[in-house]
Amino acid sequence: MNSPLSFVHVSKSFSSPTGELRMVLDDFSFELKSGELVAVVGPSGIGKTTLLHLAAGLDRPDSGSVVLDPSSSDSAVGMVFQQPRLLEWRDVKTNLRLATDAAGIPAEAGLDMLHAVQMSDHADAYPLSLSGGERQRIALARAFAIRPELLLMDEPFSALDELTSRKLQLLVQKLWLERRSSGLIITHDTFEAAFLADRVVVLKGKPCSIDSIIDIPITRPRMTDDVRIFNYHIQILDALIGADAIKR
């Protein structure tokens, strides 16, 4: 089976405001397995979002390649951003319909997803009238509505309070169980990584490389009070502290 996403010897650098060239990725390789959800954690500014932008086609590597499954359909990528990124001047159902139309999927799929994220009553509302958590629910509905074969999430709950964040993690798990795609989630929350992911990739150094990969072989549905999740959360946290301490 083809990998839904592969980074093959990818290098990427950016110019700093002072004109200095800063290499973020150097000969980076990683392969996502079909049907798995991988969380990427690492110290701030290490290049996690760069990885996601390369996967989403928002950026191009200087060398190497980012390969999406060639057998997947054209509209195979869904994304949940740190901010909901909804069109404020369009109501909720139009925001979803634009995504489903572009993916060639019936608009009903969007309304079904609204129901799944418990936002059916807000189909006619404008995003500005909703709370941050509600808007992020809509963003989740939009990403899942297009039936993505690859789901990308960029710190999707980091701007929310902890309670809302936990609710949405449970929601993502529920949707994940229903839809079964492959996914990559960038997060700073090690509990979130342990709770949602099948594997957790810990990044280190500059340019970044993989410090360790932690498998989380816990079957879904997972419970937030499962002590094994808590233990993995601590293990990831330890690896992260170790990665952060590495001299750059």
Binding site: A56, G57, L58, D74, S75, V77, G78, M79, F81, Q83, R85, L87, W89, R90, T94, L98, A99, D101, A102, A103, R142, I146, L152
Partner: peptide, 25 residues
Amino acid sequence: YSLIEMAHVFRLSPTARLRHLWFPA
């Protein structure tokens, strides 16, 4: 710009981008 990125990721058509993103903004 973040909305332009969103439109790119979700592959909105040029017409949809003009009508729902560029003109209203």
